[in-house]
Amino acid sequence: MTMPPLLRVAVLDDDDDLAATVARLLSRNALPASAFSVPHSLLDALPSGDFGCVVSDIQMGEVDGFTFAETLRAADPCVALVFMTAWPTTTHAVDAVRRYGGLDYLEKPIDEARLIAAVREGLDWSGRERRIAAITQSFTRREREVFDLLVRGHSNKEIAERLSISARTVEDHRAAIVTKTRANGLSQLIALSRGEEV
């Protein structure tokens, strides 16, 4: 299996200078990053950009960070989000983490070590999500159901009962799954379901 291409980081802030500075900081720390100052230019670049993590300001001129986060999630559910803000509030901190799936909520001036740690974590998470998506997208709906139960440790017989199909059919699906993933046994399937590289 070939190594997946290295995921990039997008930095979004309506302050050009800060966006560029944060992007350069990340690049210096072996985290290739691009700077954006307008949300829609980042969304435009999304299909070709291969972004694993977006570092976004919350209070921006036209679109606020949370609205942007929803649009971004709809466009690509595998991108990790890190928020930064100059107006930190407890409500926002809770919202950023609970409702918008942000990995961290950073106050400006930014704590560099914390930012880098959060971005690294985000890229890892995104990589895993992408691998899981890549594997399961070739499955049929039934294969997906069988796969989900299989990696949770259910036997063929139990799966057959749960899905109300014959054990024979389960074995067929299982064979198809192994062929498609080129996995070598159940333990590798479980590893794949967790997004681990095999």
């Binding site: 800060l18 500075t21 100059a86 400006k108 001036p109």
Partner: peptide, 8 residues
Amino acid sequence: QPLSTLAI
């Protein structure tokens, strides 16, 4: 805001 840039 500017301090963020300055500090980095």
